[in-house]
Every structure is written in C-alpha cells, then in structure tokens.
Design a protein around this nucleic acid. Structure first.
Lengths: 358, 358
DNA sequence: CTGAAAGCGCTAACAC
DNA sequence: GTGTTAGCGCTTTCAG
C-alpha cells in the first residue's frame, strides 16, 4: 500500500521495461530521442505499477534554475498592492525549494508609459515565466502576445484580459462583488437613496478599470430588486484630503437623507475617516479591500461591511500554478480561478488573518 | 545575493570549521557526540555565512519515516466531519514528500466509550505525532497526558483543552462566532424575539459541547445590545425528520411572530428545509458550517447567513505545523490559531471554494 | 568525539 | 536510440 508505492523508483521501472534509467528519464521529460516502442513500454509500466517520481531527488539532481518575473503596480505603504507584494514575498520561499527565483518589476498604475517601459525591461530579462496584473489592457496584450510567441508561460492576477494564451488567472469576480455589496447595503427596508464616491481616473477608458465592473454589478442588483432606489455620485481625489472634505461636506448638505454609502475602489477609509471626523454615526458604509485604514473603520463602526479578497492568496496560488507548470508540467485544475469574496464586519475582522496556505 | 546563498553547502561549513560534514551534521541535528568547542565553531560559521540546509537533499538521504495519527469523529457523507477528513486527505500528499504517513482513527462522537477505545488503539500504534479533535474532554486529557509523557507532539483541531502540552491548536473562536451570529441576526430594528433550535445531547455535560460556547456568545451580544429581545428554545433530533417537523409546526403555531431563527450546530438545513417545505419565506435564519445542504438553503433563500470556518484549512495547517515540527524542529509562530469566520450569503456562496493552500 | 565513505533517486553528459 | 556514469547535498553507518 501507501508505503510500497513510495519505494518504486525509476530503476524499478527501467528493469521492468528492460531499459535503462536514462531512457526512462527521457520519456518522463519528453526529451525525445526515444523509440516509439520504448516510450510505449515505459508509459505502460509507469501506469501499471504506479510509479511517482521522487521530487526531492529530482530537484536535487536538476541543474535547472528558473526566473519568474512579476509585473505589478508600485505602492505606498498600506495601499492595496502592498498585499499583493506580500504574497509574492511569501511565495519566494516556496519557489526557492524548486530552484525558481522570483523578482518583481514595478510600474506606476496611473502612468501608461511606465507600464510600457516595465514591460520592455521584463522582456529584456528573458524570464522563464511571468505573473502580471494587466492594468493597461492594450499594452499588456502586447506583452503577453510576445510571451506567447516565446513560449513563456504567464498568469494573470487581479484582472485578466480576453485572450487565450494565459496559463491561469486568479482574482475576484468583480461584477459579482458589486452585486454582493448591493445586497449587503440595500437589502432592507427604507433604502431609497445611495451615495457612491469615486475617483476620476482622467483619460482612463472605464472598461480598463476593474472597479467599474463592480459598479455595474451593484447597479444591476439595485435595478433588479429596488428599482425605485436612487444612486447619487460624486468624485473624490485619492491624494487630496482637503478637497475630499469639501466635496463630502457639500454632498451631505445637499443630500441630508442619504444614509447609505458605497465605494468601489479600495479607499473606503476616505469616507469612514470623514464620518468619524464629523462625528456622523448614522450612515451605513460598505467598501472593499482589507487596507489597514479600512479595517480600522470597521472596528470603529464607521464602516459596516468590507468585502475583501484574499489578495495574498491569489498571488501565492498564481505562483504555485506556475511552479507546478514548470516543475511538473501540469496545468492548474482550473484556468480561471475566481477567489472567495469575504465579508468582514466589526465582529469577525480580528480573526481574519492572512492565510497564505489556504 | 540570492543565488549565492543557495550554493552554500554543508561541505563549505565543514571546511571553514576545519571539521568534517559528519560533525557539522551532528550539531545541525543536536545528535550529541560533539565537543563543545566544535559545536560552537560550527554554529558560528553557519551563522556567519548564512548556511541553509538543502531540504531536498536532506529528505532524500534521510531514512526516517514517521507516522502521524489523526483521531476524529466518523461521519456520514455531507456531515461536518467530512470536511475535516477532506483536509486530512489533502495534507497526505504534502506529508508524503516529507516521509510522513498519515492515518486516521475514527470514533463515534456520541459514544464516549468508542473514543476511549480509539485512543487505546492509537497509543498501541505508537505514532510519532498525533492530531485530534478532543470531543470528550476528560478522556482526551488522559490520552494527551500519555502522549506528553511519551514526548509525542500533538495538535488540537476544532476545539482544544485547557492544558499546556499541545504543540498547536487550530479552530474557530466559538464564543466570538456566536457573537457574530447575533450581530448578523438581530442588529436591525424590530427584532423582539428569536428562536433557537438545538439538539439534546443526552448525558453530555454542556461545557463539553463547543456549540454551547457559541450560544453564550450569542446571548452576550443580545443581552448587551438588545436586552428586551426574547430567546425561545426548542429541541430537535439530528436523525428524526418527522419528529422535527412536528416540533417545528408546533413551535411556529405557538409563536407566529418569531421571524428570526438561529442554530448553533452545523445543521441549519433541518430548519431551512422545513421552511422550504412549508413555503415559509418571511423568516430570517442564521446558521453555521458549510455543509452542502446548508449551502443549498443559502441559494434558495431559506438561509440568510451562514458563518463558516475553513475546516479543511484548519486541519491542513494543523498537519503542516506538525510536519514542520518533525522535519525542521520548529514550533509554529502561534500556538493558538483562531481561524477566520467567513460570512456566506446567497451572493458569495458560489465563489467560496475550498482553498487548502490558503 | 570525529572522519571517511556509501548511498538516497534522479538528471544529464557522454559514449556507443 | 540507448546505456553508463558521475554527481546533486545530505544522512548515516562504521572505523578509529
């Protein structure tokens, strides 16, 4: 049983085939130079006696060393992409055991040209595998088609592009997450008005922005279940607190009856901190992503629900998929992996630890 | 950099110490038989040049083979403990790479004597490590004290005992999960009455039953925030559907105004299926655990919220902790690991996949 | 207490 | 096409 199966070595296979270890190894790794007949026999025997290669021995003997390059937005401490970076760091330890080195190339998520440059640098490095967050769709497509041509496997995280060359994708179902947010916010009596605060991303085409999928999901839910509910919108700036206070003051003066608020980007804390500052406690705010400042809002009661994804888990699994592809030549069970949307409240936030391994 | 550090081998250490590989290995594994001076030198060099053992080579050369025994309740398909068992199976693959075999010993969670017998069988097997769900506290204590005496590491999952010999614990914060359930159920206007359906466990002392902690947490929240809210109770039987229908019919006849329901065990579906059957759709039900039948209730709308734990993740991490202890002699970062309480609704349930690695 | 040496199962270079 | 062989870095006898 169990125990025995572990003891079957490549030598056993060779003997049973009447061939040598070398030949068996060749078919194991599709390294060619093997006659059709030998190949058949080897595969048959492997199948029959249930041979499983010893990964430890394989890794030890292998001289191969791979480089995996990750292409993600740069970040300031506490911002969303820091979570992703954390996940990458975690995955490095694992990758090392497989002779895979991981390096990160950053770009400015608000600057398309910086993405292009980063992509060029990436290609110059000639990586054996790539993981990327394709914020600028068109340019990302240029990159990935080159990778495809070079036969370099790549996985998308966070969002993905509509093409067919990627090894896997790990991310949150954006549309559904908006739908979920709506159910949490408006699924109760007396919600006739909802406020949404957004960023104006300037020249961005909206469809390039994953958060607009969220918005669509949200609107769909409202239209479906509470068609009479009105949605108000206003625009904030990510890095201009004083401006935001003015906008919010003006908004709530104009709309004193709006009690329900939603944000689709990761900065719900812009609102929650405003509410705290103004001593407003009768608003219900739903937001996204487990930034420290958002979690704080949860604890203080100024955020009611936070919908989060296990961002570290996403990249960790993304990298795991690549490793398994490179080491075992196996594709992931699912190509598109929509990861769980977790609902955080004041009462479970403190038990929501990062769980890379799960 | 990175690359170089991987190339430092035990041989380098030996050379720099003016000793042999053998001696270095001895201090690496505290295998004694080494002079104080040699030991000091070796440790110093390791420290200085940052030597990290190559786990692949180590595992390959090692002749050690360990057995890890898991002691958990037996289950019927679809029941809670099946999730745990699934996690164990998943962990087996990983354990195999470390020359660790995992086997499971089952007991009947409603029969104390069966636990005792299982414990005896376990000890007879002389395992090198143990993972257990200590349903019967007193008897589990007997077991673990023997394990301690034998110097066999063990970890608790699901619930833990108040003692000090365990390597780690992975589970859900039961009291807090009840508190959370209450916030989800009653934190809104007009909840004046709540129904709770329980099982009568017969001779069980209530404190042996983790679900009663949940109940306490629930009551605490209600008492704190909605002291005027009344809690009704009634008892069902896990395996007697007809009896349950009668009890529920009678209950709702007596209490037509009770619109909010909570269960603390894993069988919310007993209620949700009843509600569906009777075509009752104006009740709000909150329950626990991601049994398939509970998830079904979520989808059909007869369950509003389900609070779940990543049970598979718990055992997987529990086993990982043991592996790391046995292989690397490292204790887990945290001894008590309260894992996240996830909130499931109709709108995120389908994206809540099992995520062993996270 | 320490060193030498024989593998662990697999890879990869080389010879045939 | 195929077999042979020398390691990969570490563990584990076995002498001394």
């Amino acid at each position: 049983m169990e125990n025995d199966s572990r003891k079957i070595t490549i030598k056993d296979v060779a003997k049973l085939c009447g061939l040598s270890k070398g030949t068996v190894d060749r078919v194991l790794h599709n390294r060619g130079e093997v006659s059709k007949e030998s190949r058949r026999r080897v595969l048959e025997v492997i199948q029959r006696i249930g041979y499983k290669p010893n990964i430890n021995a394989s890794l030890l003997a292998s001289k191969k060393h791979y480089t995996l390059l990750c292409l993600i937005p740069q970040f300031a401490p506490g911002e969303y992409w820091e979570l992703i970076y954390t996940g990458i760091n975690r995955a490095m330890e694992k990758a090392r055991d497989y002779n895979i080195g991981i390096e990160v190339i950053f770009y400015d998520q608000f600057d398309r040209e910086s993405f292009r440059q980063a992509a060029r640098r990436l290609l110059d490095r000639n990586p054996q595998a790539v993981m990327l967050a394709p914020i600028f769709g068109e340019d990302a497509l240029d990159l990935t088609s080159t990778l495809s041509a070079r036969d370099v496997p790549y996985v998308y995280i966070d969002s993905k592009l509509e093409e067919d060359g990627y090894l896997a994708y790990f991310g949150m179902p954006m549309y559904q997450s908006g739908y979920l947010a709506a159910s949490l916010l408006v699924d109760q009596p007396d919600v006739r008005e909802v406020a949404n605060f957004r960023f104006d991303r300037g020249g961005d085409r909206p469809q390039d922005n994953p958060t607009s999928c969220r918005r669509e999901g949200f609107m769909a839910y409202v239209a479906e279940k509470f068609p009479e509910c009105r949605l108000h919108e206003d625009f904030l700036k990510p890095y201009d607190p004083e401006y935001n206070v003015r906008v919010l003051d003006a908004f709530f003066e104009r709309h004193p009856d709006v009690r329900h608020i939603v944000t689709f980007n990761s900065r719900a804390h812009l609102i929650s901190e405003y509410l705290e500052k103004r001593g407003i406690s009768d608003r219900v705010l739903v937001g996204f992503d487990k930034l420290a400042r958002n979690l704080d809002g949860l604890r203080k009661g100024s955020v009611k629900f936070l919908i989060t994804q296990r961002a570290e888990a996403q990249v960790y699994r993304g990298i795991t998929a690549i490793i398994e592809y490179m080491v075992f030549h196996t594709a992931p069970a699912e190509r598109d992996n929509f990861m769980s949307m977790d609902i955080l409240t004041k009462y479970n936030v403190d038990y929501y630890t990062d769980n890379y391994e799960f």
